[in-house]
Amino acid sequence: MKFSIQRDRLIQSVQDVMKAISPRTTIPILTGIKIVATSEGVAFTGSDSDVSIESFIPKEEDGDELVEIFTPGAIVLQAKFFSEIVKKLPMDIVEIEVINHLQTVIRSGKSEFNLNGLDPEEYPHLPQISEENVFKIPTDIVKNLIRQTVFAVSTSETRPILTGVNWKVESDQLTCVATDSHRLAMRSAAIDFVNEAKYNIVIPGKSLNELNKILDDTNEPVEIVITENQILFKAKHLLFFSRLLEGNYPDTSRLIPSESKTDIVINTKEFLQAIDRASLLAREGRNPNVVKFSTLMSGIIEISSNTPEVGKVVEQVQSQSIEGEDLKISFSAKYMMDALKALEGLEIRISFTGAMRPFIIRPINDESILQLILPVRTY
């Protein structure tokens, strides 16, 4: 195998596939990046058996020559060393050649590295996914769906199913839900799907975080293919496979209250900043990071926190409107700040159904997104 390649594109592809490589793998070949050169271009693959990423660099794109193939072939190179080497090469063009079976030479300008390669035949094949049921979503919407839900997955392995995000596909609608049983994030979006198939799957939160890092912010569509135990995301020159979590995701629809006793409309940014300030003194004590929230006269909300050994903070914020009963409630400042950062829009509506019941936060005039938080007992 021998080819030359643009260094910038090489670095980008290597960084993308590195996101699938685990330093703790027990399978030696999976510490490597598989490189395959064909007459069409060069493919780079990384995998940890849960997530597999393939990045393809075509011979040319938009009239620019990116790769010149002299001899097709394949090799697996130690990811840790290969990724460090390509970042530090001196020139814009890199030449990679396999000599003496697996010995690999990497040249750029006056710099030359020799790396011991591994046998590409031993590298596991990417899952073969039949692509009958493909649906498409613009990349920027996929990124938003992930960003607005994945933060609410559980980090505890006691209920593994909650470490993933539940994706439900039904009649050209995708609904994504994440919960750690103290809070819930939900976002739905219309999808381009001609099939009548229904899906109810759980994607590991870790996989979605990695996918979000390597997708570009464009409105180009991402093709998504779901099988029994795998999901494939296909973007331009990129394949991202993830295994799915096994088990049934809990029915979260019954957690979402249908009526409310107190409704508050408030400026998102002002509210977020007030919660942030109140949380400064709420980090210690019996209920760490808990702030108190109460309604006062003429649309004013009081946000406070009190840690006897540190001090207390009280702040009043003017809401746009308060309807319904007076309210005193306590909740996690972190959960509230996470939820507010995920929402879009200048104003939000918070709907409460009592001091010890879950409450809902939504942007004004947008039914596609919802955040739910369980209060904390302090009053």
Rank of each mutant, 00 (worst) to 15 (best):
Q6K: 12
R9S: 13
L10C: 01
I11L: 06
Q12A: 01
V17C: 04
M18D: 09
K19D: 06
A20R: 03
I27Y: 09
I27R: 00
G32S: 01
K34Y: 11
E40F: 13
T45W: 14
D50T: 11
E54N: 04
F56V: 01
E60V: 12
E61D: 13
G63M: 14
G73H: 11
A74T: 10
L77H: 02
K80E: 12
V86R: 03
V94S: 07
E95H: 11
N100T: 11
H101Y: 09
Q103M: 13
T104D: 14
T104I: 04
G109L: 01
K110D: 14
N114W: 13
N114V: 13
L118D: 06
D119T: 10
P124E: 00
P124L: 13
H125M: 08
H125S: 15
P127L: 01
E132D: 15
N133C: 08
N133V: 15
I141F: 11
N144Q: 11
R147E: 15
F151L: 10
S154P: 11
S154G: 01
E157K: 00
T158Q: 06
G164P: 08
N166S: 12
D172W: 07
V177S: 04
V177I: 15
A178L: 06
A178H: 00
A178R: 05
T179M: 02
M186Q: 10
A190H: 12
I191V: 13
N195D: 12
K198F: 08
V202P: 06
G205P: 09
G205M: 00
K206C: 12
E210G: 01
D216E: 15
D216V: 15
D217T: 14
T218C: 09
P221A: 03
P221S: 11
I224W: 05
V225G: 01
V225L: 04
V225C: 12
E228C: 07
Q230H: 03
F233T: 05
A235E: 05
F240A: 02
R243M: 04
R243V: 09
L244H: 01
G247P: 02
G247H: 01
P250F: 04
P250A: 02
D251I: 08
D251C: 04
T252Q: 08
S253M: 10
L255E: 08
E259K: 00
T262Y: 11
I264N: 03
I264R: 02
N267D: 10
F271M: 08
F271D: 04
Q273K: 13
S279I: 07
G285Y: 07
R286T: 03
R286Y: 06
N287I: 13
P288Q: 05
P288A: 03
L296Y: 03
M297S: 09
G299R: 05
I301F: 06
V310C: 13
K312L: 10
Q320C: 14
Q320P: 14
S321E: 01
I322L: 07
I322Y: 00
I322N: 02
E325D: 13
Y335M: 05
L340G: 09
L340Y: 09
G345D: 09
L346I: 15
L346C: 15
L346G: 07
E347C: 07
I350F: 11
T353K: 14
I360A: 08
N365Y: 07
E367S: 10
Q371E: 03
I373M: 05
L374I: 04
V376Y: 04
V376R: 00
R377H: 00
